[in-house]
Nucleic acid binder design. Sequence first.
DNA 1: TTCCTTTCTTAACCCAGATCAATGAACGGC
DNA 2: GCCGTTCATTGATCTGGGTTAAGAAAGGAA
Lengths: 194, 194
Amino acid sequence: MDAANFLVDYFSQYMTLSEEEVQLIRNENLIREYKKNDFLLKEGQIATVCFLVLKGCVKRYYLEDGEERIMEFYTENDPIAPVSYTTKEPSQYFLSCVEPCIISTGTEERTQLFLQKFPRFIPIFVKIGDSLAAKKQVFLDDFKNLSPENRYQKLVETRPDLINRVPQYMIASYLGIQPESLSRIRKRIRSNPK
Amino acid sequence: MDAANFLVDYFSQYMTLSEEEVQLIRNENLIREYKKNDFLLKEGQIATVCFLVLKGCVKRYYLEDGEERIMEFYTENDPIAPVSYTTKEPSQYFLSCVEPCIISTGTEERTQLFLQKFPRFIPIFVKIGDSLAAKKQVFLDDFKNLSPENRYQKLVETRPDLINRVPQYMIASYLGIQPESLSRIRKRIRSNPK
DNA sequence: TTCCTTTCTTAACCCAGATCAATGAACGGC
DNA sequence: GCCGTTCATTGATCTGGGTTAAGAAAGGAA
């Protein structure tokens, strides 16, 4: 099983790759496997790379009074650009694997080199960036607008996979509520199936 | 009073401009003044341009059951890239002026032309984009982590200007609570000055 | 100034989610 | 298999924000 294939798949979502490009991606990319609970980044560290999740699930969370505050789950084909990578300051949050993962790491320099070699990727890169930003805005808007119950319903609709692959107390943290509350919300929905 | 000076000021934050560049910016840019309550974008419209607020204050909000749900305030030097501009689909939200505004509008094509003429701006553009994204992430994280009361406290610390230039019921909407609740929160803080 | 509109505050009551505590269920290691 | 830990559920109680309704304060227009 060739891990670099995942990366080829990622780009193939957006464009058709030539043989040469496929080879370059296979040869030049740093792809690593991680075990469950391995860290990609810890609080206090300065991130030196960005990530692309090829397989598995990563959580991003703050540690406050010993409590995890989960901000985001990254799964297949989700890129991760740590704030710390951009600011070059110590990270305020953690990145760790919820499952065994296969992850590609990248740096600005390597991306620049890649784009110089294959300029036809530039507009795609920009577009991906823009649409990620747009997606994020909509997501934040939803969070602000919806009650915890509706947030859960929305999550079930939009990312049903998460519900099954991630423990419930992490989902609760992600939704900004306590595990007990999520349990009650689920009960409420069960007994009141619209 | 030359409105284009605002734009020169904006770029000057990040880099030193040559005379030629200043001239280009003055000549080529579309800058318009708006009255209070003018719309930059309405629900259902497809955005054809992006904005840069040079002076004034713009709110971004959804209209739900006749209620404004304010997501963001943009003030001096804040760029606005509507989701609709990226997706080319009808906007789900409104952009309107909370104050009289001076605003520069831009398009992808014009930006591309500008960058072709002055490639040295490219890395700056990328950096601005990245740091905006990072700032937004931190902001969203705060919103998820903090109680309404703490959100208000944080806002007072980080954007004290907003408190004075924007009516309180808009601040409340922005914080995701009712005006009555914000009133109580303010009272609570007043009587309990940490 | 007066009048009207907009904005802010206060009070009373309600409810979803928080908190504390206990019990059950599922999972992993041995 | 058994045991211990982790995870999910349920109950009792508390609380901050929502809701409704009323009135006070501030701002504009004539």
